[in-house]
Amino acid sequence: MFTSNKKTTTINTDKIDTLIGKNTGIEGTLTAEGTVRIDGKMKGDVTLLGNLIVGEDGSIKGNIKADSVILSGIVEGNVTVENHLHITSTAKLIGDINAKNIVIDEGAIFNGNCRMDLSIAKAEAAATKDTKDTKETKGK
């Protein structure tokens, strides 16, 4: 129904820097760089300078901040993404989203609010253009 010719950002799943396995549970805050894959259970916030993959068996109870996220498991918390959020058909997200680009596959469950922010540079350029257009209109 909706199509786009824009190229989407993808996460290189061949290079994973940190893996939390299927039979692993962690409580606390996770802060890391690079690509992190969670197939186990995480209770706490996740803050990454990089990408996050939540596998089908993965679950997070906490807020997420990352560059890009592929969500196939369960997240109960807010998700803030600088670039691309992909919610696959097996995913369940209960929480708010703030992202630049979002893809939600058919069958995914999302319960929350969604906000798509412009990048700071684009927002400043748009504000400058609006101000310039307003000044030019008043001068005529």
Rank of each mutant, 00 (worst) to 15 (best):
M1I: 07
M1S: 15
M1W: 13
N5Q: 11
K6W: 03
T8H: 11
T8D: 09
T8F: 09
T10P: 08
T10Y: 08
I11K: 05
I11Y: 07
N12K: 04
K15L: 14
I16K: 01
D17M: 06
D17N: 13
L19E: 08
G21Q: 12
G21A: 15
K22R: 14
N23Y: 15
N23G: 15
T24H: 11
L30F: 15
T31I: 14
T31K: 15
T31E: 15
E33D: 10
E33F: 13
G34C: 06
G34W: 14
T35A: 00
K43G: 06
K43V: 13
G44D: 07
G44V: 09
V46Y: 08
L49K: 15
L49V: 10
N51I: 02
N51W: 01
L52E: 07
L52Y: 05
L52Q: 03
L52N: 05
I53H: 00
G55H: 00
D57V: 09
D57L: 07
A66K: 04
S72K: 03
N78Y: 00
V81T: 05
V81D: 06
E82W: 01
H84Q: 14
L85M: 08
T88P: 01
T90G: 01
A91Q: 03
A91S: 02
K92V: 03
L93G: 02
I94Q: 01
D96G: 02
D96P: 00
I97H: 00
A99M: 08
A99R: 03
N101F: 13
N101H: 12
V103M: 11
V103D: 12
E106Q: 13
A108F: 09
I109P: 00
G112T: 02
N113W: 00
R115V: 10
D117L: 14
L118V: 06
S119L: 11
K122Y: 10
A125S: 07
A126H: 11
A126R: 14
K129E: 02
D130M: 09
K132M: 13
T134V: 04
T134C: 04
T134W: 11
K135C: 03
E136H: 09
K140N: 12
K140H: 12
K140L: 13
